[in-house]
Design a protein around this nucleic acid. Sequence first.
DNA 1: CGGTTAGTTGAGAAAGCTCAACAGATGTGG
DNA 2: CCACATCTGTTGAGCTTTCTCAACTAACCG
Lengths: 261, 261
Amino acid sequence: MYAEHVYDPSLPTPSQMRWVTDATNPDANAVPLPAVSPGPVRSLRSVDMPTNLTVTEIQQLDSIVLTTRHVRCGEKLFRARDVFQSLYTVRTGSFKTVVLHRDGHEQVTGFQIPGDSLGLGGICAGMHNCDAIALEDSTVCVMPFSQLESLCSRSHRMQRYLHQLMSREIVRESSLMMLLGTMTAEQRLAFFLLDLAARFRARGYSGTHFNLKMSREEIGCLLGMKLETVSRMFSRFHKEGMVEPNGKEIRIIDAERLSRV
Amino acid sequence: MYAEHVYDPSLPTPSQMRWVTDATNPDANAVPLPAVSPGPVRSLRSVDMPTNLTVTEIQQLDSIVLTTRHVRCGEKLFRARDVFQSLYTVRTGSFKTVVLHRDGHEQVTGFQIPGDSLGLGGICAGMHNCDAIALEDSTVCVMPFSQLESLCSRSHRMQRYLHQLMSREIVRESSLMMLLGTMTAEQRLAFFLLDLAARFRARGYSGTHFNLKMSREEIGCLLGMKLETVSRMFSRFHKEGMVEPNGKEIRIIDAERLSRV
DNA sequence: CGGTTAGTTGAGAAAGCTCAACAGATGTGG
DNA sequence: CCACATCTGTTGAGCTTTCTCAACTAACCG
């Protein structure tokens, strides 16, 4: 139905995503760890992290991934205020993270696709600060944090890797704050689409043709606007020939122009 | 002029703020490290971090603080894209961090007062992701990151402390995203004032009477609104008897009602 | 002391929200 | 496998909030 290079998380994880994987998977260590690139602060320029791990270190990391956990669509990997014990890496599928305000307001703080981390906000107070909800049937690698910490004590590069993971999350959130604080609805959606496209591309999927697993409402909740506004902006991009939206199937026609919105 | 318990960064740092300090200060280690509490995600409830450092560890931390750097009002401690080498802790004065968008738009991502950290976003890509600008003549403790890292390798608790520092920044930014994504102008300013009040209180200053070092425009730039709107909201709070704003001098009259805005 | 900057307030404009109607897609039980 | 119910997405019209532009005042600075 779709072009074969389209992101479809029901397919097996592409090999480049298996760097943190089920320890029972025999060829997991054969694959070099890709550079983790931070979310684009300015445009789509992605800055690679300077330190990549060696095969030995990937093996060490694999050795503490004791379990792979499956989460069904709509179910929660963890909830805000749950005791923090592990970090997670999305292996297949996708998630959203949601911060809850006392008055019932929700703010989506991110969408996570394979290779993305979950749970970094929980280290601070020993309890998670958000809900992590599967947008489809998904699997994650579970990294018990205490074990990750002792691994970091033994390996400088592993330590640096964890620090970069956390710092990257800080940078990602800063760029979302800028989006929420300074951009129009049109710019927000353009930024969102280009960011998602870049992340898919970085992971070996198509950067021009993909399927959104989240609803218009969830997109709006990330971007600080109402679902109707999201829909109108999609229609506008369509009319102007920049994006071909077909429900949740998105085709980016003119990324250049989209980035100049 | 002001009550003596009012926050005035021109005064010497209060003793409870000296936990990370100039190594030449002889009594620096006499003071226990206070718990670092994350920014309030829900209301003002502050959650203490479970791990505090021992006196020995504070000494270790002090031992790598090789320099105290002075930054004059308006000058930059570091700029976006500067090479990342050190983390900083505000010792006296205050800062703002600003993320720049390619089209010239600026977003303030935070105000830092004594005890707050600066530079955590730089670890990710080896370069800083924002400008850190002094809002008044200020001093910071410089912690060379490579030394901090090796200290972390030797001390589990120090490692955990750094992780909590970073995670706390992630949580803080999440809560600002929620503010920007879901709140009205009135709610944003109320949240901002209560958050600032709580931070001053946690550091031993007055939580009801303090001086803003930032302009209305800078507040607006943090909260995603124009300076005129900030001003109007201050006037509204004044008229309703919740806040007594006198230019940059702020007196919080009814925190309870403010939190229910 | 004059010039500049920061803050306040008002009036009109604009962006995005609310409410509502409708269309398509999806899912479910008979 | 169909009929019906439900959910998701689109579009329109009017409304609300916030922005923009402007005038004015107060504070600050050289």
